[in-house]
């Protein structure tokens, strides 16, 4: 069962990769990166159970946090053009 789930996640990873390669707009690629990160988290968790080492779950959780921070940073960059904005001055002088 774990092997089947791993295979399914790998297929989904491939589809997300195709979208990242082709993606005409920036947001396609951002979404693809987020999706690949999520698939990686799932893959690591599944591999942990597949190889009989469920401790990998902790690592998967840490990956999820890294993925979240990365996507937030990227989206902030896309919206404001740099990282110096606090986000509260929406519709400010820029």
């Amino acid at each position: 069962m774990y092997a089947m789930a791993t295979f399914a996640v790998l297929v989904a990873l491939g589809i997300a990769l195709v979208r990242a390669f082709l993606g005409p707009t920036v947001f396609d690629r951002v979404l693809a990166v987020n999706s690949v990160g999520t698939k990686t988290v799932l893959l690591i968790a599944l591999l942990g159970f597949l190889m009989g080492r469920p401790e990998f779950l902790d690592i998967a959780i840490a990956y999820a946090l890294i993925n979240f921070i990365g996507v937030v940073a990227v989206l902030k960059f896309v919206k404001y053009g740099d990282f110096a904005h606090s986000g509260e001055e929406l519709g400010g002088e820029r």
Binding site: A20, F21, R29, V33, G37, T40, N67
Partner: peptide
């Protein structure tokens, strides 16, 4: 270059999965 940055992030995630599969957590 923006797409390149995104793709290099994807590359890192794929490399990380490969390292996990090789048991180098």
């Amino acid at each position: 270059l923006f797409a390149v940055v995104m793709l290099s992030g994807i590359y890192s995630f794929l490399a990380a999965s490969m390292f996990v599969a090789l048991d180098a957590v």
